[in-house]
């Protein structure tokens, strides 16, 4: 396996794992939200925010995938010697490792954020005025996905 393949494997992991986490998190919250909305349809706006929140990890994963592809020179303005043509196996491993923080932090934080948001929707059903507090608490989980994203970005844009 060459450096390019390793880097692209990293891209795939970042997008797949963070995406899977978001799909689970959003799916879980949406199910609870549907249950609440079947009795209190007026809470749609508040439930929507909480349902959308675990979806951000999937976007972070996609962003990292996109940045790695850009870095490799597979898309964007053509250069004399694109990186993907000269990338070594060692650099491929490094690129692969750069994708891991967002992949795993995204996967796990999205699932747990989904649970926090699901509980938040339940709380909103009982006390609609307190939806903001539920959102703030769920955002704490987001912090760790953001750390994963930042670490991946820093690793991708280091001096190669």
């Amino acid at each position: 396996m060459g450096g390019l393949e390793l880097a692209l494997f990293g891209v795939a992991l970042a997008v797949f794992l963070a995406g899977i986490g978001s799909a689970i998190g959003v799916g879980l919250t949406a199910q609870v939200a549907n249950g609440v909305l079947s009795e209190q349809p007026d809470l749609f706006g508040k439930a929507l925010l909480l349902t959308a929140l675990p979806g951000t990890q999937g976007i972070y994963g996609f962003l990292i995938g996109f940045l790695v592809i850009m870095k490799l020179g597979l898309i964007g303005a053509p250069t004399d010697v694109p990186f993907y043509q000269v990338i070594t196996v060692g650099q491929g491993w490094q690129m692969f490792a750069s994708c891991l923080p967002v992949a795993f932090a995204g996967l796990l934080s999205a699932i747990h954020q989904g649970r926090a948001c699901a509980a938040g929707v339940e709380m909103t059903a009982k006390q609609p005025d307190q939806a903001g507090k539920a959102l703030v608490l769920a955002v704490f989980v987001e912090f760790y996905a953001v750390l994963g994203l930042l670490t991946s970005i820093l690793l991708i844009f280091r001096n190669w």
Binding site: L28, V32, N34, G35, V36, A118, V121, E122, A125, K126
Partner: peptide
Amino acid sequence: KSDARYAYAVGRIRSLEN
């Protein structure tokens, strides 16, 4: 013990508890 199969059901019950 958490059981995600009950997500919709619990959402609905929370509304009814009001």
